[in-house]
């Protein structure tokens, strides 16, 4: 019974942890959207900044990956 309860908690926790992915989505969307807005204002400067764009996206995405990782850890490792 107690094991079942713990299992339930794990699954609920894992599900809750995936909410973090939404935050990562918002962050990545923000980065990409602002890049596009800036790029449309000054298209000539956009090409030189794609590296910055990807680094920004990577940083924003990393946090989402962390929450995914927590979900996986709850599911399989705890």
């Amino acid at each position: 019974m107690e094991g079942e309860l713990a299992l339930m908690g794990k699954y609920i926790g894992a599900g809750l942890a995936t909410i973090g992915l939404g935050g990562a989505g918002i962050g990545v969307g923000h980065v990409a959207g602002n890049f596009l807005a800036g790029a449309l204002r000054n298209p000539s400067a956009a090409a030189g900044q794609t590296a910055t764009l990807f680094v920004g996206i990577a940083f924003a995405e990393a946090l989402g990956i962390f929450s995914f990782l927590i979900a996986l850890l709850l599911m399989f490792a705890v």
Binding site: A58, F59, E61, A62, I65, F66, F68, L69
Partner: peptide, 9 residues
């Protein structure tokens, strides 16, 4: 973050 990003994705 460098390693988890790649593996996690």
């Amino acid at each position: 973050s460098h390693s988890i990003r790649l593996a996690g994705n």
